[in-house]
Design a binder for these strands. Structure first.
Length: 476
RNA sequence: GGUCCCAUCGUCUAACGGUUAGGACAACAGGUUUUCAUCCUGUAAAUCGGAGUUCGAUUCUCCGUGGGAUCACCA
């Protein structure tokens, strides 16, 4: 059975790159009817961020990336790691290192000065038994290092095929830190084996440390899982996506009002495509169609333009009811909002602004003209050079439209259009000279749905009230 | 610097060694339209360079160039 995992460290928010890794691991597990495990890699107590484990889980759930097992916490499994570290120690595949931070810094400084690649010189490996015992007795803190053999290691990456590294270039990796906690490398390997992970799907930044992991599997007598190293997500300047150059937390995009469908669809296509010209995919469709061998090798620039388009698409695709439910929490945060502003027309209001919304966050502002009791008119808005509308024209348009609409009983788009067209013809003005003032009177906005639709959606009572109020204001 | 990875329109990408190098987003130009959107039509836009293999390279090989990742008691 296929078992994948997502193994973030709780050092802050969930990175969009992390989200994509989680998504791919999830898709691969689901499509193979396998298991998806969540594991928290919290072996560095210094970098732990309060609340990050909770928010990590919330975000994954928000995107419906549900895991079958976990979350497991590495900080609760330290006994296991120590056991295997000791085993390697006994077998001579690892050794204790008593070097201090200063020793190591000094060593590295010397090496860089001599233009050699910085690498641990194994001085502690040569320590004789008496000296070693003396240090242990004196309780000198030590780390456990993995002994890296001078030989080649190869493995097959699902995305990059044959990978080849040589031990001469790899440092004797620390396995257990002096505080007794394991490093990523040890904990990761032990857990992946212990949890039966069959496919390690992770970012490309892990490629260089994979040989260490392979040697660890071998020294522990285990069969390594299959690896798939995902291409990086990039800044516009093609460096690794970073906070300096924009929002990188998945939450940021939720807060910006992007739909989960859009974010998921967008992120799935950064590095993968189905090989056809289809590009609109739901999570379920992705489960069906995803494949690791269609994953790209090169990094992908995290460019929001496509996300905006996808978001608009999914916004328009929603039913007004679903959309209204998503907007509601945002509406409730508005200072002007109160529950009794809602009436049975609400869904029609939502429907009328739907094609205009770029994100959920546009909702409150676009709905406000429909919901507010009184608009605080901005007189300058009524005037439009382009529409050839001056103050006198505004007053005239409103004065002429009002009585016509008052006598109109059939308040449908067509009837309203016919009614106003007659007035316009009689006045001998241009459409815009009538419709622009009406639109501003109805919404106090520069952009809005069409006037006929506006009138119908608002209803006779509210719309006429708006027109009268506006007329009073303009005449005052 | 060592090691490793990568390379098609601005961006995401497609193309059994044979295509007028395709699509989408963005851009631009039109159409629909009272505004803004939506919607429709169209235009422009790419194989990093050089060798080699081949009847034929975007595709395979080598070299170069460019970009990136990584070299911690962080993950």
């Amino acid at each position: 059975m296929v078992v994948t995992r997502f193994a973030p460290s709780p050092t802050g928010f969930l990175h969009v790159g992390g989200l994509r890794t989680a998504l791919y691991a999830y898709l691969f597990a689901r499509q193979n009817k396998g298991k998806f495990i969540l594991r928290i890699e919290d072996t560095d107590q210094k970098r732990f961020v309060e609340g990050s484990v909770e928010s990590l889980q919330e975000v994954l759930k928000f995107f419906d990336l549900n895991w079958d097992e976990g979350p497991y916490f590495q900080s609760q499994r330290t006994e296991l790691y120590r056991k295997f570290a000791n085993q390697l120690l006994d077998e001579g595949k690892a050794y204790r290192c008593f070097c201090t931070e200063e020793d190591l810094e000094q060593m590295r400084a010397d090496q860089t000065a001599r233009k050699i690649a910085p690498k641990y010189d194994r001085r502690c490996r040569e320590l004789n038994p008496e000296k070693m015992q003396a240090k242990l007795d004196a309780k000198v803190p030590f780390v456990i290092r993995q002994f890296i053999p001078y030989e080649e290691v190869t493995f097959t990456d699902l995305i990059r095929d044959e990978m080849r590294f040589h031990g001469r270039d790899v440092d004797d990796q620390v396995l257990i830190k002096s505080d007794g906690f394991p490093t990523y490398h040890l904990a990761n390997v032990v857990d992946d084996h212990d949890m039966g992970i069959t496919h390690v799907i992770r970012g490309e930044e892990w490629l260089p440390s994979t040989p260490k992991h392979i040697w660890l599997y071998r020294d522990l007598g285990w069969t390594p899982p299959t690896f798939a190293h995902l291409p990086l997500l990039l800044n516009p300047d093609r460096t690794k996506l970073s906070k300096r150059q924009g929002d990188v937390a998945a939450e940021d995009y939720i807060k910006k009002g992007y739909l989960k469908e859009a974010i998921l669809n967008f992120i799935a296509f950064l590095g993968w495509n189905p090989g056809t010209e289809e590009e609109l995919f739901t999570l379920d469709q992705l489960v069906e169609r995803f494949s690791l061998d269609r994953v790209q090798k090169g990094g992908a620039v995290f460019n929001l333009e496509k996300l905006d388009w996808l978001n608009g698409h999914y916004m328009r695709e929603k039913s007004p009811k679903d959309l209204a439910e998503l907007i509601m929490p945002l509406l409730e945060r508005e200072p002007w909002f109160s529950k009794n502003l809602l009436n049975d027309q609400f869904l029609t209001f939502v429907a009328s602004v739907q094609t205009r919304m770029k994100s959920l966050n546009d909702g409150p502002a676009m709905l406000r003209p429909f919901l507010l009791e009184n608009l605080d008119y901005n007189e300058a808005l009524f005037l439009s050079e382009k529409m050839k509308v001056d103050k006198a024209m505004v007053a005239l348009a409103l004065e002429q439209a009002l009585p016509a609409l008052e006598t109109l009983n059939d308040y449908t788009d067509d009837a309203i259009k016919e009614c106003l067209t007659k007035v316009i013809e009689k006045m001998g003005v241009k459409n815009g000279q009538m419709l622009w003032p009406l639109r501003v009177a109805l919404t106090n906005e520069e952009y809005s749905p069409g006037v006929f639709e506006l009138l119908r959606v608002m209803g006779k009572e509210l719309s006429l009230k708006r027109l009268r109020t506006a007329l009073d204001k303009i005449k005052a």
